[in-house]
């Protein structure tokens, strides 16, 4: 076996996987707080990416990223408050799924209406690089790109901040309480609604950072960037366990590496890498719905 090829593929996989991990993290945070799959998570991140790109035209990218993430936090919280919660209150479980699917389609279309793809020819959507990410590091003859290293570092920082927030602050305690049991949280005086909004906001902000970084990896990005990544991110969230942030991140890398290796070594998936995450979702949900790190949900009748 060619070690260099193998390592290169692993590094490729990590490079893709960090993106899957970041989006999966957002999906998991929403699921933990509201028990919903936000099918629009990818497109919300896409919208954040375009907003950040617009901001970066008039300010440094670092600042634009912070402002973009902050706006996304507000946007995510607003979506929860105005669309998701009233729908939940009606007690129609299909309704909320339908709403996030509707958001998926309409947000993607909205982006195309505001930033028409035809305009990209004169002014291409090119995200400024938030960090010097040209070049690679050589490890055993294989190349690991600086972009991947930076992205992993940023993801780790995000995870550390999230950990501190959830485990070391009063707010985090409330967030965890709501994730664990909404009814009991209400009884002990936690403002559940606020926590749900914060959960959605956090997820939107994490998605925004992921979107901007993914966009900056290539010379040009377009509106379809997140659509396939969403499938991978859902695969990662399923594999890691839908209520486990740690699981989402670990599984994101696993999905990325598994995909890269499958493309290289399994002929059947040549040219159709998307099959890998889809089959993964399928088998995990079928045989181990709680994933690697998730809690098993016991159904009460």
């Amino acid at each position: 076996m060619d070690v260099e090829l193998f390592l290169n593929q692993v590094f490729n996989g990590i490079g893709n996987g960090v993106g899957y991990a970041a989006v999966a993290l957002a999906i998991v945070i929403v699921f933990r707080t509201t028990g919903l799959f936000n099918f629009a998570q990818g497109e919300m991140a896409m919208l954040s990416t375009f907003v950040t790109w617009q901001l970066s035209e008039s300010m440094p990218i670092g600042l634009a990223l912070v402002v973009g993430a902050a706006l996304s936090f507000v946007g995510g919280a607003l979506v929860e408050r105005t669309l998701i919660r009233p729908m939940e209150a009606k007690g129609n479980p299909l309704g909320t799924v339908i709403i996030t699917i509707g958001l998926f389609i309409s947000m993607n279309a909205l982006i195309q209406l505001i930033w028409p793809p035809s305009k990209a020819q004169s002014n291409p959507f090119s995200m400024p690089k938030p960090f010097p990410n040209r070049g690679t590091v050589e490890i055993f003859g294989a190349h690991l790109s600086w972009f991947t290293i930076w992205f992993v570092i940023i993801l780790l920082i995000e995870c550390a901040l999230l950990y501190l927030l959830l485990q070391k602050t009063k707010l985090g305690l409330s967030l965890r309480a709501v994730a664990s049991n909404q009814e009991s949280s209400k009884l002990v005086g936690i403002d559940v609604g606020k926590m749900l909004m914060i959960g959605w906001g956090l997820a939107a902000a994490i998605g925004a950072v992921a979107g901007v970084l993914l966009a900056s990896r290539t010379n040009q990005f377009d509106v379809s960037m997140m659509q396939f990544i969403l499938a991978y991110a859902f695969a990662a969230a399923a594999l890691g366990g839908f209520d486990s942030p740690l699981g989402a991140v670990v599984a994101g890398f696993i999905v990325g590496v598994a995909e890269a290796l499958a493309i290289t070594y399994i002929d059947a998936v040549d040219g159709i890498p998307i099959v890998v995450p889809l089959l993964l979702i399928f088998f995990v949900l079928l045989f181990r719905p709680e994933g690697m790190f998730g809690r098993k949900v016991v159904e009460r009748v």
Partner: peptide
């Protein structure tokens, strides 16, 4: 001929109808 107008209307209709007219 704006790209995205049809999916925008349909996606929004999905949200609005699911919301107000289940």
């Amino acid at each position: 001929n704006k790209v995205g107008m049809a999916p925008f209307i349909l996606g929004t209709a999905l949200v609005v109808i699911a919301y107000f007219l289940p």
